[in-house]
Design a protein around this nucleic acid. Structure first.
Lengths: 335, 335
DNA sequence: TACTCTCATGTGAGCGCTCTCATTCTGAGC
DNA sequence: GCTCAGAATGAGAGCGCTCACATGAGAGTA
């Protein structure tokens, strides 16, 4: 008899009923310590482990969390996914991650379909466009949903950094250094984060009575590079650029380097994210730090709370921090 | 009656037995087309979807693949995970990814425990140390295992790039440019990839009758930076560095920049991986490209084959390609 | 002593599916 | 028309667990 032990095998060995074994497994209070001990030793003797499928069948709870990641952005979502996976594992949940091509309806339909088939308990979405969120909400009505990097809503728990404050922080840093002609390269306009950072930039500019100068971007290095070239070619050049993420900053720096515009002497650049590489750019990038790890943990935390006892929906935020390095510098007088 | 439809509901509506419905679901051949059609329309009318837990309970197949990722390396594993997840989804499998801290016994024991609890069909490991693989093998004896970025073994399917060839390619490129004093910064020595790349380097050096100069690294940017500083401080400096990944190259470039050693004029640098950022380093990094996407797809493909019909174990490799950009240059004569 | 009441445990049903085996239907072959 | 193989379908059991409910053993009360 080489098959895996089941709850009846344990029951027989411990000389109790299967139900008592079940109670021990589920930490039911009304089990005598002596009985519990008997059962536990039987469990370890038989190397018994409960069958999740059977459990799931009867409780209709999968103890699985799905994570939907929009876009192909590299560092942020990956870092968050890591944190979420670890946090969920600690709570006895497993994580199924699915990355969705943001532009492909097909892609996210398939993803949602898969999550439905698995009877997932909860879904965390990262940086999904609003229209996709709507679809998720409709199709996964029975699941608990927590949204990250997305516009807060009364229907879900939302976890975000203060993107507005971050954008303002970055811009104010440049203003304090004496810059007046500051360009902002945004993220994609249909995303919450980019939008908020841009609003923060505009608010800071208006407060300082400066004219905002916004160029629409899409998070990609390529765009940073292209816009860098474009700015280099301008007759009247700005003296500082605030890119909405570090990747775009990298591209921009590259472009400026090629055009012999020195950073930071001729042009200050500030990014957003504080990816691990940014400290090692040449020059090291001044940026706004967001704590992806913390963000991921918070999202899972909220998920677990909602899963236990559906409460009212919260919007949770983390404050970003300015990290000053070498790519920004006091504007030289007389320029 | 608002509960989810089950197989009996479908059977009743289609006026067949539940068993016939099951046959339709599983594409059993002996179902009359007319019957199949009846059942299918009942399915879509009731919005029926089979309960995976029940299926899993009786078949004891989870249709889930676990992916164990060792280390905190950023781009490579993430890119592969993405590719694997997509490929697996296409085949009707779900992916549970777990990232393991390579040094923490606790961490990977927990991970394996989780995979066992879930009755996972197969496990793909990415860049795991050999001792961990052994543990995985022991603990997950019933699961099919495919190893990626790891020393091939007769016990598993292995998917790798030709790390040796890649290392040789990189070194030969430098040699062809006239370099003779070439330092190699390795990956961690207990990992297969780094070891092989280093061997490729040594082979190329010996062939060219040059003396290998190996420094042990660990993939991290920080180490690249530290070693860059160290090399800058040497009295007799090499003229070229081959770092075993792009991140270390980034760190090294930064260090050399700070010490006013110009890349590539005073020092050629070649990396390995071809991460998306590397084309935008200053200078753009010459490197060895490895196709993570393809690697991920191949791993899942092998997994699916093994899952269907356990065959003999293969070792599959992909050939890396040299990507020449700006960070390497012909050695100036007279130097 | 008879009575509740609580705590500890046992019993049987059923979650939704696939398995095996039994039965019915079909049409070719004589 | 009858037989019989093979195709098409049905019936029932059982996967391993938790749920609701039943039962029994003591403790507390009158």
């Amino acid at each position: 008899m080489n098959r895996k032990a089941n709850i009846y095998d344990v029951a027989k060995l411990a000389d109790v009923s299967h139900q008592t074994v079940s109670r021990v497994l589920n930490n039911h209070p009304s089990v005598k310590p002596a009985t519990r001990e008997k059962v536990e030793s039987a469990i370890s003797e038989l190397k018994y482990r409960p069958n999740q499928a059977a459990r799931q069948l009867v409780t209709s709870q999968s103890r699985m969390i799905g994570i939907l990641i929009g876009g192909s952005e590299l560092y942020g979502p990956w870092a968050m996914l890591n944190a979420m996976e670890r946090e969920a594992r600690l709570a006895g949940y497993s994580v199924i991650s699915i990355s969705v091509l943001p532009d492909s309806t097909q892609s996210w339909r398939e993803a949602i379909e898969q999550l439905r088939n698995l009877d997932i308990d909860g879904v965390i979405t990262i940086a999904l466009a609003n229209k996709i969120i709507k679809e998720v909400e409709k199709s996964l009505a029975t699941a608990t949903i927590v949204i990250v990097d997305t516009e807060p809503s009364k229907k879900f728990d939302a976890v975000n950094i203060e993107n507005f404050i971050g954008g303002k922080l970055a811009t104010e840093h440049l203003i304090q250094l004496g810059h007046k002609a500051i360009v902002h390269l945004t993220g994609p306009t249909d995303g919450y984060e980019g939008e908020q950072r841009c609003k923060g930039y505009e608010a800071a500019m208006v407060e300082a009575k400066l004219k905002p100068d916004v160029i629409e971007g899409d998070w990609s290095i390529e765009t940073g590079y292209r816009i860098g070239c474009e700015i280099a070619a301008r007759k009247v050049r700005p003296t500082a650029i605030f890119t909405s993420n570090d990747h775009q900053a990298l591209g921009a720096i590259k472009a400026l380097n090629e055009k012999k515009i020195r950073v930071p002497q001729d042009m200050s650049i500030i990014g957003f994210d504080n990816i691990p590489e940014s400290a090692y750019f040449s020059p090291a990038l001044t940026t706004v730090h967001q704590d992806f790890d913390e963000l991921g943990k918070l999202a899972v935390e909220r998920m677990l709370i909602q899963l236990k006892e559906a409460t009212t929906h919260d919007s949770i935020t983390i404050t970003p921090k300015l990290v000053v390095r070498e790519s920004t510098q006091q504007l030289k007088v007389g320029k």
